[in-house]
Simulated assay, not measured.
Amino acid sequence: MTSISDPPATVPPATVSARLRAATAVAHEQAESSPFIDDLMSGRLDVDAYAGLAQQLLFVYRALEDVGDRLAGDAVADAVRDEKLRRVPRLTADLAALGVDVDALTPSPAVAAYVSAIEATVADPARYVAHHYTRYLGDLSGGQVVAHRMRQHYGVDDAALTFYAFDIDKLKRYKDSYRDSLDALPLDADGVDRLVDEAIGAFGHNQALFADLAADRG
């Protein structure tokens, strides 16, 4: 029997999207508060710092979109895949606008590990969705703030910020629909567990990416 002094039972979130949000809350906050991101968003760095971030993200999105293409036709992956989200062409154009030779780029150690983790999800679409959720939903949300701060603090031209521009009419409506798609994923309990665990790990990869960028700047 439960006594009056017993703590209330913890009820797990009812939906996949709610569970993802709850499970990644701490990792998300840690990634956003990393020293590199805090300095970049506060105006304490420079355009080169933003360019360095964009360069490393190119490898991440190449992997995301390559694996997504390979998973085309899979019911789980297709639930979130959308051509409107494709970022590699825009990121490549942004880097060209910043004067970066994309053919000369190499991934940092953290990004190489991040790419390997994404590539491994071709064998498990549930885990692929975790990386898709972590990056693209972030771009549709906090990414819009990043673009504003890059203009505000460093005068980055819109021609170098097309990565954050989406051909989507109502971003909130789209994000709500995306979460509905997560909630309707054809996954069993084990599949959802793998998705959530991979999402937590994805935020860890982003933290490592930011740490590499900070180390490169001394």
Score class of each variant (00 low, 15 high):
residue 4 I to C: 00
residue 4 I to E: 11
residue 5 S to L: 12
residue 6 D to V: 03
residue 7 P to D: 09
residue 7 P to G: 09
residue 9 A to G: 08
residue 9 A to W: 05
residue 9 A to N: 05
residue 10 T to F: 09
residue 11 V to W: 06
residue 12 P to W: 05
residue 15 T to A: 06
residue 15 T to W: 03
residue 16 V to G: 01
residue 17 S to I: 07
residue 17 S to K: 08
residue 21 R to N: 14
residue 22 A to T: 14
residue 24 T to I: 10
residue 25 A to T: 11
residue 27 A to V: 06
residue 31 A to D: 06
residue 31 A to H: 04
residue 32 E to M: 09
residue 33 S to H: 14
residue 34 S to K: 01
residue 34 S to F: 00
residue 37 I to Y: 02
residue 38 D to T: 13
residue 40 L to V: 05
residue 41 M to H: 03
residue 41 M to S: 08
residue 42 S to P: 05
residue 48 D to H: 07
residue 48 D to E: 15
residue 48 D to L: 09
residue 50 Y to A: 08
residue 51 A to Y: 01
residue 52 G to I: 00
residue 54 A to Q: 15
residue 54 A to D: 04
residue 54 A to Y: 03
residue 54 A to I: 02
residue 55 Q to R: 05
residue 57 L to F: 05
residue 57 L to W: 00
residue 57 L to Y: 02
residue 61 Y to M: 11
residue 62 R to Q: 15
residue 65 E to T: 03
residue 66 D to V: 12
residue 66 D to P: 09
residue 67 V to K: 08
residue 68 G to W: 10
residue 68 G to S: 10
residue 71 L to I: 09
residue 73 G to E: 12
residue 74 D to C: 04
residue 74 D to V: 05
residue 75 A to G: 00
residue 75 A to L: 07
residue 75 A to N: 01
residue 77 A to D: 03
residue 78 D to I: 02
residue 78 D to H: 01
residue 78 D to L: 03
residue 78 D to P: 01
residue 81 R to Y: 08
residue 85 L to S: 04
residue 85 L to F: 13
residue 86 R to C: 07
residue 87 R to D: 07
residue 87 R to T: 11
